[in-house]
């Protein structure tokens, strides 16, 4: 929590940098081996959205996503990082195409894994059709890459969470790491409240939002495989761990994932609140889970052991 000084090592800087607060570019810089990142279609190429001008909205030179390659412990990886502050990290035509292209390149090469740093509210309203198409293309590209033997790892801990089409893509990944402030869902809190009423879901009750969609709950449910503390170094270590753990992809694995989800629904389908699920899991004082420090939570989650390493 104390300010870093200039002469610290990259690992120390990554440890003291909040993943949640960092920009997409800072996340990549500190996640990868120092100086190894090379960007594809960088901002100087000005591949901006063709749609935003029509709506008199400002563009961003990278259209809100940074894609490229770099090294993790000396081994090559492809990376994509969404910038959650530009239009809520939402998918548009160019934004989506950059990720699709990266995944297709990974499929062709076959041996280089992909890390996707999600930070998105879903599809950009102003380019909805192109954005929805992009989501479908990316989901297909993820599955094709995985079928070709590529590990696709999602890292989720940004301020915009991983919502809408982002949540669908995350569900297609080989494995996910999530931090406490990270959120994963399809419908966002405001969408649920608008459609089902404030009695169903009070989007301003942030404790409710996080215990329903937040990182700790997603880890306990097995939707995410690893829980990272909110700093870039922890995400780097989580990515390393997942790359080591993820096994080969096959139809059997998909069937196992389907069975895991069905079983989860049978077991917890009647629960009204996340706390009920945690209690059902046998967690003592389940209501204190949101207050647990990261190390204690990781110990608890490992004891519960509900991950999907035999599935996905």
């Amino acid at each position: 929590m104390i300010a870093p000084l200039k002469d610290i090592t990259p690992a120390e800087r990554a440890r003291s940098t909040s993943f949640n607060e960092a920009s997409a570019r800072t996340r990549l810089e500190l996640l990868l081996d120092a100086g190894s990142f090379v960007e594809f279609i960088g901002p100087e190429q000005r591949e901006v959205s063709p749609h935003l001008k029509i709506f008199d909205l400002p563009e961003q030179f990278d259209d809100g996503i940074v894609v490229g390659r770099g090294n993790l412990d000396g081994s090559p990886v492809f990376v994509a990082a969404q910038e959650g502050r530009f239009m809520g990290g939402a998918f548009g035509e160019v934004h989506g195409a950059k990720l699709t292209g990266l995944l297709r390149a990974a499929r062709q090469i076959g041996s280089i894994p992909v890390l996707i740093l999600f930070d998105t509210g879903g599809v950009r309203l102003q380019e909805a059709n192109a954005g929805e198409l992009a989501i479908a293309e990316i989901m297909r590209a993820v599955m094709e890459a995985r079928s070709a033997g590529v590990k696709v790892i999602g890292l989720i801990g940004g301020r915009s969470g991983c919502y809408g089409g982002g949540g669908l893509i995350a569900g297609c990944c080989s494995a996910l790491a999530v931090s406490e402030p990270g959120r994963i869902a399809v419908s966002g809190p405001e969408v649920i409240e608008t459609n089902r009423g404030v009695e169903e879901f009070d989007s301003r009750d942030r404790a409710l939002v996080w215990r329903t969609m937040g990182g700790k709950h997603r880890r306990l449910l097995g939707a995410a495989d690893v829980f990272a503390d909110d700093n870039v170094q922890d995400f780097r270590e989580a990515a390393r761990e997942l790359l080591r753990l993820v096994g080969p992809f096959s139809l059997d694995r998909l069937r196992a994932e389907q069975e895991r989800l069905a079983q989860r629904l049978r077991r917890f389908g009647a629960c009204e609140d996340a706390v009920d699920i945690w209690t059902e899991e046998g967690i003592p004082d389940a209501e204190t889970v949101p207050e647990l420090p990261a190390d204690q939570f990781v110990a608890l989650a490992n004891r519960i052991g509900r991950t999907s390493r035999d599935a996905r």
Binding site: S23, R25, G42, P43, E44, P58, E59, Q60, F61, D62, E83, R85, F86
Partner: peptide
């Protein structure tokens, strides 16, 4: 040759310098 800083958001800006 070039560098970029900032993001385009309400009250914020990006500067690409070449």
């Amino acid at each position: 040759r070039s560098a970029i800083i900032g993001v385009v958001a309400s009250g914020n800006l990006e500067v690409l310098v070449e």
